[in-house]
Simulated assay, not measured.
Amino acid sequence: MKKVAISLFAILAGTSFAMAEDAGCEAFKWPVTREQALFAAAPATPSGAMLAVGAAADLALVPAEQAGFTLPPEHAPASGTFGAVASVVVPPEGTIQISLSGEAWVDVIQDGHAVKSAGYSGVKTCPSIRKSVRFKLAAGPATVQFSGAKKAELKVAVLTPE
């Protein structure tokens, strides 16, 4: 009887934990299920790479002072943090959603100017996604800067909003 009670407790605890994880991801202002699926198979990508809209990358970050930011990040990165610069071609509809697996600041630069975000959602209780930021941009090239990350890797998804 004791083994059955312990097993039942373990099953219920595991179910509760899984439900808590799902509830954490459900707390975003918009769905992040596409990002979760893309992050699972995100290819290793170096700093400086082109990010594709509709895809994810496991971005290798460098020490922030070596990132080569186009413009100073809106939030100055703390000492000992990591960053990267990447590029993206914004689709004709113009709005992109950049989602990150961990804590980091994201800036988007277009035509030499930093673009303010059009929307933000961040959740600390989702195990695979930390934040998702939307930007309204003109179609064409843009630079994306990641800064202030505490780890040297960051999964990034660039999508059009649902």
Score class of each variant (00 low, 15 high):
S147M: 04
R134Y: 11
P141V: 09
A56T: 07
P63S: 03
F69R: 02
S132A: 06
A56M: 07
T160R: 07
T95D: 00
A20R: 05
V106P: 00
R34E: 15
V106Q: 01
I129Y: 13
C25G: 06
G119C: 01
A55F: 00
T45F: 07
V32Q: 09
V144C: 02
P63V: 02
D22S: 12
G94F: 02
A152M: 11
P92R: 10
D22F: 13
A41S: 15
G94P: 07
A10S: 15
I11F: 10
I98W: 01
V4E: 09
L51Y: 04
K3I: 12
G148S: 11
V115S: 06
R130G: 05
G68N: 03
A149S: 07
V123A: 15
S87Q: 10
G122A: 13
T160F: 08
A37G: 09
E103C: 08
E65D: 15
L61F: 11
A84Y: 00
A5V: 14
L71P: 13
V89P: 04
S128I: 14
V106T: 05
P73F: 02
F9R: 05
G14R: 14
H75F: 09
K29S: 12
P31M: 08
F82V: 03
M19Y: 12
C126Y: 08
L12V: 10
A44T: 10
G24L: 02
S128P: 13
E21Y: 05
A42V: 02
A52Q: 13
S87T: 12
S16M: 01
S47Y: 09
M19A: 10
V85G: 01
S16Q: 01
A56L: 06
D107Y: 03
Y120L: 14
F146L: 14
D22Y: 14
G68P: 05
E153K: 08
E65F: 13
C25P: 07
K155H: 04
L38E: 00
A37R: 11
G148D: 08
H75V: 11
V90T: 00
I98F: 01
R34I: 12
K2M: 06
V85W: 04
A5S: 13
S87I: 06
D58Y: 05
P73R: 07
L159T: 09
E21I: 03
M1I: 14
S7I: 14
G24Y: 03
S7G: 15
E93K: 14
D107S: 04
A149F: 06
R134L: 15
Q110N: 07
S147P: 05
V4H: 11
F9V: 03
I109N: 04
T81H: 03
T125N: 12
E93C: 09
I6D: 02
L100C: 05
I98H: 00
L154Q: 12
G83R: 00
P31H: 12
Q145G: 03
G68M: 05
G122I: 11
V156R: 00
V156Y: 00
I129N: 10
G148T: 09
K124N: 13
M50I: 15
V53D: 01
A41L: 14
E65L: 13
G102L: 02
V89N: 06
A57Y: 05
F69W: 00
G94L: 01
G148K: 07
K155A: 04
A60T: 07
L100K: 12
S132P: 01
G112A: 05
G112N: 10
Q36N: 08
A37F: 08
R34V: 12
L59Y: 04
T70N: 13
A44F: 07
L61R: 08
A84V: 00
W105C: 04
